[in-house]
Design a protein around this nucleic acid. Structure first.
Length: 398
DNA sequence: TCTCCACTGGAATCCAAGGCGG
DNA sequence: CCGCCTTGGATTCCAGTGGAGA
């Protein structure tokens, strides 16, 4: 790559089209690997929509990185086009229930995604109106500009209550919408999710359910090869893709992880000024991937949760024992210091306990209740799941 | 086995931000 | 513009818990 000197610097020596290595990159149909059956089943479930009929509601299960979101997005996009050829207007709303976990937020997001203010003359404000108002606007939007609305609820198990599912799945029969119809695609990591639903929602929501199995090493290898165009010709070490695929297959067959590791390996080669992406970079790339995933999760947390994580990390470091469990009270006093250092007012104890149990729910920390003996009552101790140094680093970058 | 009491966690309440109808 | 309503985060209040020490 040294022959093309330019005032604007050399072209990227490693990547030809890095976009291909973004996880959100939606490949063309022939490039979704090893999911032909699943795509066909999904298509069958919702195919009525392309003639304006009501699609079946679907629940999809599978571990992270098994292509659930990808296939849902792909198939709904395909359906929207096929329907448009029949003169049927299909709208797709994608909701990440991790981010929009309350009923109000979910309805609002759906309404915003399906709305076109110019066409419907309906506004969907960010705050200030009641939940039922959001519902009413959503129904109006559906009737006004669509024949079929498809709602993808990703990480559906993170929803706080299932009222929204009830409303969505029964919208048509309850006469909320008359000119249009509605289908729901729910995506869950937890295979037992269905058991937590009440009977009515369960029967209407999971008319069909599918399980996406983890990718095996062969499929992962193929997936990685299909994205190898992201790199310049011939710079990948021969054993690189098989090694990354084997690593990811061992860890739950997560394709997203595999792609991320491949990208990091490329970046490491770039930093070393190396013109080959060597197989030796894989371990470091793996570390980076784990750190990045943690940072991403921590970055999504509220400000004070980050301070709490920092406080807990500091105490664990002070204790010189990565597995030491810190009582909530001690975490709180350290947290007050962290807040002071950052120039913010600390939250009260009660609120902090809520945030801590939320962090425990996300498996960023572990909590255990302990007794303390006479006159001491019960209390909770908190433990970091990850290395304190890593957590502190993640909090800083977030 | 009983008791003690700090900590837990549910519930009520407050507050800020923001839309809506009059 | 004003009063009223909604949501969601934070605070306040308080009854209940639970396990080591007696």
């Amino acid at each position: 790559m040294s022959e093309s000197e330019s005032f604007f610097g050399d072209p990227d020596p490693i990547f030809a089209d890095k976009e291909l290595l973004r996880v959100s990159h939606l490949p063309e149909g022939d490039r979704i690997i090893g999911r032909d059956q699943e795509l066909q089943k999904l298509a069958n479930a919702i195919k009525d929509a392309q003639r304006g009929g009501t699609p079946n509601n679907v629940l999809i299960y599978g571990k992270t990185g098994t292509g659930k979101s990808l296939c849902s997005k792909y198939i709904t996009r395909d359906l929207t086009q096929a329907a448009a050829d029949n003169g049927i207007k299909v709208g797709v709303a994608y909701v990440d229930c991790f981010q929009e976990s309350t009923e109000t937020q979910t309805v609002r997001t759906i309404a915003q995604a399906l709305n076109d203010p110019v066409q419907t003359d309906i506004t969907v404000p960010h705050t200030g109106v009641s939940t039922s108002d959001y519902y009413r606007r959503l129904w109006d939007i559906l009737d006004a500009r669509l024949d079929v609305g498809l709602v993808i609820l990703d990480e559906i198990d993170k929803l706080e209550d299932d009222n929204v599912l009830m409303q969505l799945s029964r919208a048509a029969e309850a006469g909320k919408v008359t000119e249009s119809t509605l289908g729901v695609i729910g995506i869950s990591n937890k295979i037992r999710y269905k058991d937590s639903l009440n009977e009515r929602v369960k029967s209407s929501l999971s008319e069909r359910d599918f399980v996406f199995p983890p990718y095996d090493a062969n499929q992962l290898r193929e997936i990685l090869r299909s994205r190898a165009d992201a790199f310049r010709e011939g710079i990948l070490d021969e054993d690189l893709i098989p090694k990354v695929a084997a690593l990811a297959a061992k860890e739950h067959g997560d394709a997203r992880k595999a792609i991320d590791i491949l990208r990091y390996a490329g970046e490491i080669a770039d930093e070393h000024g190396d013109d080959t992406v060597r197989v030796e970079y894989v371990d470091e790339a793996h570390d980076r991937e784990e750190q990045a995933r943690l940072s991403e999760l921590i970055a999504k947390q509220p400000e004070h949760s980050k301070y709490l994580l920092q406080a807990l990390s500091l105490q664990v470091q002070e204790a010189h024992d990565d597995n030491s469990a810190i009582p909530t009270k001690d975490v709180y006093s350290m947290y007050e210091l962290v807040c002071e250092r950052n120039g913010v007012d600390p939250l009260k104890m009660r609120r902090v306990r809520d945030l801590l149990s939320e962090l425990a729910f996300l498996s960023l920390i572990e909590q255990e209740r302990k007794g303390r003996g006479k006159g001491k009552g019960a209390h909770t101790v908190n433990q970091l799941v990850d290395e304190p140094e890593v957590v502190v680093e993640a909090c800083k970058s977030a």
